[in-house]
Write a protein that binds this DNA or RNA. Structure first.
Lengths: 333, 333
DNA sequence: AACTAGCACTCTGTACAATCGAGTGCTACC
DNA sequence: GGTAGCACTCGATTGTACAGAGTGCTAGTT
């Protein structure tokens, strides 16, 4: 643990570095709020902080820069929680005051909002297959050999599954299959569909069982849809173009990002800094995440990704308020 | 028009510059295929080409670099059409041999394929509201005040529209509204839905007319869905990070990109170079596009975006073959 | 008349030295 | 324990020299 003075110095270094992106010298720190000692004393303390791994010097006779450990300590113990106020707060308010009938569009817009609020790249993971009830199940023939299983869920989402048809199942029998299927599935939870009994008609049963299997499995199209907003801001955050390329490469791998967010939350973190993310290309990045709920259940995740020297209080505040509002919105409908 | 020798020299400059990204000197050009004169002669010719606006010198005593006009001439008259062969051809074959039941997933994968083939950023615009027939129209109640209009089209896509319900329309009457609506719309073309007659029941008519209006309008969720692949490659193409940021910024504006592609095709172009795109931030970029068809009708567009010094023959070949295969695939199902 | 060899010239990129300045570590002092 | 002062370090900047690539022009050749 750090004594109060070291803590104040560390905080001053982190805050100034976040602002300027330049190594911070003892003279600047000595002038900071909460530091009431001379630059010489600051230098001594900074040497200790460096020894303890909170700071490092890019080279002799440069200022100090926070290490991962330094950021971590800052986030855990030093950052004063920010509140969104003024223009940004207004932005959030008006955003959630608008009607957003389509969930997909709303999440995509949310991603943009979050990116605008923080000036960072944002990620929004759509709700997973929720504990939603089946409101409607219907088989629609596309051709003589293929049908579409269309499922409407109580959360307002629509799933579709392509189903191959055995030869000789015409429209009228497809209708019967559809009705039979609906009779035995509508009303159950998406994740707990009971087996559908046979109809006694072999051809029909083939269709019904295929459809039931599709229902039981996860939605095929987007295992977990990801919306990325403000990727261009990544190019503002770093001046090494190689870093930008690597990070953008990661962001294109939907599955990787979704897993990463889940993993961070599973570890009980809201902030993952540098190597804490477990991904080498993100060594210079930090990730701030928060889950959001639908009907009181963990549904999805939102987050922002930026350089490790991001404005954590601001990012945390933005992510928190947006996840909160989003939960409300998705719950009330 | 250029005489044969100037043409050969221009071609050599463009081809070498595309390969090396370095200004090309007369000595290199003199060694190129199709140029059988000495470097001194090449120099004289290059001076003329520069005067005519096909080439420019970054500074005195540097080599020459193609101008926009130079690239344009190259694309129109000098480039020898490439054919995909070997590994890339195999990649395309195996891609389209796979089953892709969901259109959205397929387009997203196609975007990735195109990016892999060309090592450029790719864009794929989903088919617009096609001349598809309505296979199924259904109203599903979500709550006492909201319902979902679920429409299945003959091209296998599913649209959903949120509909507000007037008070007092319970499930059973919603069913009636749904049946009435379906009876008068199923089978018609998506773009030519006839007016739905009244039912004689005021509350029901309110619902039906709202739903009919939603049907008549364009699909609300994605006016024209865009899939961007390999955005990270943009960071390889330029070393000025500012350029990368600007281009990525454009790519995030779905509507802008979709309009841009449409606009280029409307002008009868397959290649738009630099300012031909009409977008200032794309001054150093070029765009290669091709439409694809569904059932013989223009349905969507694919393209690649990269630096103006891209490999045009390769990009054209890739875009052409992918659009062709995609048309086949989407038409046959 | 067309082409080319040769050469003077121009400009960039790199290497190297000198200088500047921000910042440190240490020591002596309060 | 805290601080003022100072020698020292090292990156960044500036200036200079120089090599290399490439040009434009001229004079000579075919």
């Amino acid at each position: 643990m750090l004594d109060e003075r070291k803590a104040a110095i560390l905080r001053a270094v982190v805050e100034e570095y976040i602002e300027t992106a330049q190594p911070v010298g003892s003279a600047h720190v000595a002038q900071a709020d909460g530091v009431e000692v001379s630059s010489a004393t600051v230098r001594n303390e900074m040497a200790v902080l460096e020894n303890d791994g909170f700071l490092r010097q890019p080279h002799t006779s440069a200022g100090r820069v926070p290490t991962e450990k330094g950021y971590r300590f800052f986030v855990d113990h030093l950052s004063r929680p920010a509140r969104l106020a003024g223009r940004p707060a207004e932005e959030v308010r008006s955003f959630f005051a608008q009607a957003h009938l389509e969930v997909e569009q709303m999440l995509s817009d949310t991603s943009r909002l979050l990116s605008d609020l923080t000036n960072l790249t944002s990620v929004v993971v759509a709700p997973g297959p929720a504990e939603a009830r089946l409101l409607s199940v219907q088989l629609v023939g596309l051709s003589t050999t293929a049908a579409l299983l269309v499922v409407v869920l109580s959360d307002g989402t629509v799933e579709k599954h392509a189903i191959d048809l055995p030869g000789g199942v015409g429209p009228e029998r497809l209708g019967a299959a559809s009705a039979h299927l609906a009779a035995h599935t509508v009303g159950s939870l998406r994740t707990a569909v009971r087996p559908v009994p046979d109809t006694g008609d072999a051809a029909l049963d083939g269709v019904v069982s295929r459809a039931a299997a599709a229902l039981a499995g996860p939605p095929p199209s987007d295992p977990e849809q990801l919306y990325v907003g403000g990727a261009a801001r990544m190019a503002q955050a770093f001046d090494a173009i190689e870093t930008v390329r690597e990070v953008l490469g990661i962001l294109e791998q939907q599955f990787v990002v979704v897993s990463l967010l889940r993993d961070v939350l599973d570890r009980g973190l809201h902030v993952a800094i540098g190597t804490e993310t477990g991904m080498a290309p993100l060594a210079e990045c930090a990730l701030v995440v928060a889950p959001y709920d639908v009907e009181g259940e963990r549904a999805g995740t939102i987050g922002v990704l930026g350089p490790a020297r991001m404005n954590y209080p601001q990012a945390l505040a933005a992510v928190a308020v947006v996840s909160h509002r989003l939960s409300d919105r998705l719950t009330e409908g």
